[in-house]
């Protein structure tokens, strides 16, 4: 009896004094910030600093939530499927342009409201310091001469670094199967296998290889980008090594579910831009060695569409796509 009257009292009380919150005073409560990868990884750390900066601007807590699994499928679906009220946003990673080619999801970059591209890390190729290959040209020649002998690792089967390596080989007219891919759970795990002598090369980004490169356990052979990397300016670019402008890499952006109310979309766009341009973000990215790259909402949408097409054509060419 008491229980019922208590509940009834509560409900009537709520009904009476409930204020109506609209888009004008957004945000009025905490925002959930979905990171589609686990705590401890690169996406997680970029996501956490970005959430902190957004929180400072928006004035309400921005809570990081790791929704992991299925190479990002679960987290990206959580963002795309959330109510478009501005209270669920999250990090979009390069996998969103890859997973649907593999038939793992229907989502693509077009399933989101893009808010801004905040990071890009191009592919670099790492080998052991005592490896016989002085440059990318020699490595490619060795692959050409002995197809199936060299082994590479650094991500799961069909992950970005796998596709990236295949894309490079394809562009150089080497059959992608000429390097055997050893799947690994993370780039760090692949690098450890490289150090332990299990594989011969590991494509990946410079920040991921940084600690082992600094420790002298791993050598970076080439960075496949137009300009040298900020962390290791002495590592030759693709053009310097073999004259190729071919590039591919991992990127991260901020996105929200589709059909966001215009006022909220504008508020979030401004907040994302402000966070990106803040000194803290720049310092953080430089400290960690992550690459800065900005694209506003429209350019980000175009960027995702282009990446989607490029990745898709490589994946189809090498048989990774359905």
């Amino acid at each position: 009896m008491m229980c019922r009257s208590f509940a009834a009292m509560l409900l009537s009380w709520f009904a009476l004094i409930a204020p109506v919150a609209g888009a004008a005073d957004y945000p009025v409560r905490p925002i959930t910030f979905v990171v589609p990868w686990g705590a401890g990884g690169g996406t997680d750390s970029v996501g956490r600093i970005f959430a902190l900066l957004l929180e400072r601007d928006l004035g309400k807590p921005v809570n990081v939530v790791n929704r992991t699994g299925g190479s990002g499928v679960v987290g990206h679906s959580a963002i795309a499927g959330a109510r478009p009220d501005g209270y669920t946003i999250g990090v979009l990673t390069v996998e969103i342009a890859m997973m649907h080619h593999q038939g793992l999801t229907r989502l693509s970059g077009a399933s989101f409201t893009p808010l801004g591209l905040i990071n890009f890390d191009p592919t670099a190729i790492q080998v052991r310091p005592d490896s016989p290959y002085a440059g990318l040209g020699e490595l490619l020649n060795a692959i050409r001469a002995h197809p199936g002998k060299l082994k590479a690792s650094g991500t799961a089967q069909g992950g970005i670094w796998h596709v990236s390596l295949c894309g490079l080989l394809h562009e150089q007219r080497i059959p992608p199967g000429a390097v055997v891919w050893v799947p690994s759970n993370s780039n760090a795990a692949g690098l450890l296998d490289l150090v332990a002598g299990g594989v011969d090369l590991v494509p990946g980004s410079h920040p991921e290889g940084r600690s082992l490169i600094d420790a002298g356990k791993v050598k970076s052979l080439v960075i496949l980008d137009e300009k040298p990397s900020r962390l290791y300016p002495n590592v030759p670019t693709g053009v310097q090594a073999i004259g190729t402008r071919w590039t591919m890499g991992a990127w991260r952006g901020i996105g929200a579910p589709r059909n966001l109310p215009k006022a909220i979309e504008a508020r979030l766009q401004a907040a994302v831009r402000k966070a990106y341009e803040s000194k803290e973000y720049e310092d953080f990215m430089h400290q960690r060695g992550f690459g800065l790259r900005w694209a506003g909402p429209d350019e980000f949408a175009a960027y995702m569409a282009k990446a989607d097409e490029q990745l898709g054509s490589v994946m189809k060419a090498v048989g990774l796509a359905k």
Partner: peptide, 14 residues
């Protein structure tokens, strides 16, 4: 900071 859902009480969320 676990985002427990607010449901009907969303407008009172803190």
């Amino acid at each position: 900071r676990v985002p427990l859902p607010w449901g009907w009480l969303e407008r009172f969320a803190w």
